[in-house]
Design a protein around this nucleic acid. Structure first.
Lengths: 246, 246
DNA sequence: AGACGTTTAATTGTCTGACAATTAAAAACA
DNA sequence: TGTTTTTAATTGTCAGACAATTAAACGTCT
């Protein structure tokens, strides 16, 4: 762990990187206690403030946690999926909202991922997953549902489909894509007719999953992808026509 | 933007969250300059050090960048894909190395994602992507290649395949999965025989992509997935048999 | 007037030293 | 032995100072 005081980079960033590499490389096992802030300051020959800024950087990435008190200190954190979720969602949301990614690209990625899950879901789905999918599809058919509630239910349906694959990595990847898209999806007004189409596809997807028919599930997801993309495209086109400013 | 000094949470964490929400919600557009550290300290009624710790947290997430000097300060960062890549890789590596995810699960997710990309890659691949795939497959057939170099080339091949899909979101998702797996893949000793099998599959995948045959590409990827998982399984089983400690 | 060097002011980066808050262990006590 | 008090270690916060950096403002010379 060496740092260069003459570098153009911040000392706190250098120190954070040094410690981060030690953690990621496995040199510091989970739950290991880092030296105290004062000790680190001495080791790196910087002030305590600088060390603290470095530690806050690591804390922001959930790499460490800190505890006050006599036996306190900074500990290497066992990264939990929920922590990773949160970061993934924040990052994805920003990428989308800052127009680094178009809605269409995100949509395409999302359905590609779902189709990747489908064969696994068909094999491994539990009764519970299937029940959730059915329940959400049923809810979506209710009249008087707000667009936002319809969207939320749509997300729940697709979450169940993905979770059914029993692969937390895939669930985690999807979570980012889906949650990040929600604000944009909420802008869409779902007509009675489009809702009917979507609910029908959802029901048939649930049927395919129940029947263990991976091929059908894939085809139906492909149809749903196309339909959603077209729907979004027309909505955004209409919006653009109304407000051509900027 | 309100913070509660009596909360059990750190003030710097609260401030970071407040600013983060302002950024993510879009209230602060890209490249907007945040108030200076002194001004923020006054606004939140805390010391400058506390504000600084909050800002370092945000910097660690690439949400802001800072600049020194007269017109300097902290600016809302336009999140770049490369930044997101880095974070994704760090996170994925940790999830894998801390055994929150098994190698098999990661492997399954990786190939599921690749198969999701394949149909798009077949449609959109450029001559460049194809050339890279061919070049890497050729390199992998060279005798005297170290296992590490073989692995690196393998990653490059699959990257090209995924990038050919022309969807940065998918590329980004894959990057995390693939890079995170590399340390574990590097543990595998590839026999001449297994290399031959892999290179053959790679070549045939390139053929399928060139021919525009999505079905073949999918089947071949499925075969490769099975083969890799079996290979890894036997390697880890052998390793476990040799060193049954812990 | 324009080009060029100098000063100045704003801002982040770092350091020092101090005190508060928290916490577990050690010590004292019943 | 069980309970309470004290103590020491550690993080969290604060205040003030100075260094480093940078762009703008200013002044000077041609």
């Amino acid at each position: 762990m060496k740092i260069d005081p003459d570098s153009s980079t911040d000392l706190s960033a250098q120190i954070a990187t040094a410690i981060r590499e030690a953690i990621v490389s496995g040199a510091m096992p989970v739950d290991e206690r880092l030296p105290s802030e004062s000790e680190l300051a001495e080791q790196f020959a910087v002030s305590r403030s600088t060390v603290r800024e470095a530690l806050k950087r690591l804390a922001a990435q959930s790499l460490i946690r800190t505890q006050r008190g006599a036996t306190g200190g900074a500990f290497v954190n066992r990264l939990r999926f929920e922590d990773a979720y949160g970061q993934q969602i924040t990052t994805s949301t920003l990428l989308l909202s800052m127009n680094a990614v178009s809605f269409q690209t995100a949509c395409e990625a999302r359905y590609a991922l779902e189709r990747a899950c489908a064969p696994l879901s068909v094999q491994r789905r539990t009764a519970d997953h299937l029940a959730t999918m059915r329940a959400e599809a049923h809810r979506q058919a209710q009249p008087g549902l707000t667009d936002e509630a319809f969207c939320a239910s749509d997300v729940a349906f697709h979450r169940a489909l993905v979770d059914a694959a029993g692969n937390p990595v895939l669930s985690y990847q999807l979570a980012g894509a889906v949650e990040a898209m929600q604000p944009l999806m909420n802008m869409i007004t779902f007509s009675a007719r489009s809702r009917e189409t979507i609910v029908d596809l959802h029901t048939r997807i649930a049927d395919a999953v129940e029947a263990g028919n991976a091929q059908d599930a894939d085809t139906l997801l492909s149809d749903l992808a196309t339909y959603t993309e077209d729907l979004a495209k027309s909505v955004f086109a209409a919006r653009l026509a109304k407000q051509p400013k900027q």
